[in-house]
């Protein structure tokens, strides 16, 4: 299985035969009898942190998976729950009690159109997904409402790239412009900075980074800043 990592695969390719293998497989890989077969086209990746194999491609549609961290938009507000759009085929359910220190009398002040950064807690193909604004230790730790800022969509591949260690784009951007960012693996990125101009520059840089090689990113950013100031 290791020799396929970082290789391009297409649907139908046999990745490995399960004899004594103990592996966790993520989306894009299927177990068929005694073989592991790719069901999507893309590059096979191995996540050292979560210890599972998955296939990375440039798709735009998000399929919810447990423990994914996503950015969602609230579409409906009910008495004890919210319906959140996370980009999947079905809206996700966010209970009003899945926030830190939430009780019946202390519910979160969220309205339709607000943004939240949440973690997927229930996701299977037959039910609607559920998200919570709590970390595994039941603390907020960055989850919850995202105030102000700007939300844009990107492909799933790009969002995984932004979440990788030492992502050069974000480091380079940070040298020139101060900003905060929340990346959801559902292809949504939230950016907040001091002025609209900076937000626009950050958005353009991130979206264009797919087409510009790493060494020219710095020049691209400097050009954008100069042309406006």
């Amino acid at each position: 299985m290791e020799n396929f990592v970082d290789q391009f695969v297409v649907p139908g390719d046999v990745i490995a035969k399960i004899e004594d293998l103990k592996v966790r497989i993520g989306h894009g890989l299927l177990q068929s009898k005694d073989q592991i077969i790719a069901s999507k086209s893309g590059i096979l990746r191995y996540s050292k942190h979560h210890k599972f194999y998955w296939i990375e491609n440039e798709q735009k549609r998000y399929i919810p998976q447990v423990e994914d961290m996503v950015v969602g938009v609230i579409t409906e507000k009910h008495a004890e729950s919210f319906k959140v759009d996370i980009g999947s085929s079905c809206s996700a359910l966010l209970s009003a009690y899945s926030f830190e220190n939430a009780t019946k009398s202390n519910k979160p002040l969220l309205n339709v159109g607000n943004l939240v950064y949440a973690r997927v807690s229930v996701a299977n193909k037959d039910m609607e997904p559920e998200i919570v604004c709590l970390s595994v230790r039941n603390k907020s730790e960055g989850f919850g409402q995202l105030m102000a800022g700007y939300l844009f969509n990107c492909t799933l591949g790009l969002s995984h790239y932004l979440l990788s260690e030492d992502c050069p784009i974000l480091a380079t951007l940070g040298k020139h412009i101060p900003f905060e960012i929340a990346v959801g693996v559902n292809g949504r990125v939230w950016v907040n900075s001091k002025s609209n101009l900076h937000t626009i520059i950050i958005t353009n840089t991130i979206l264009n980074s797919q087409f510009i090689p790493d060494d020219q990113i710095e020049n691209f950013i400097l050009k954008l800043i100069e042309s406006r100031t």
Binding site: D6, F8, G42, I43, H160, L163, S164, C167, Q210
Partner: peptide
């Protein structure tokens, strides 16, 4: 079809990074 998809995917990924790991 395989070749066309491979060229497209390997093309975009190569301008980003060689390895990607998911951060916590």
């Amino acid at each position: 079809i395989k070749l066309a998809v491979k060229n497209r995917i390997m093309g975009t990924i190569s301008t980003n990074t060689t390895s990607t790991t998911i951060e916590s």
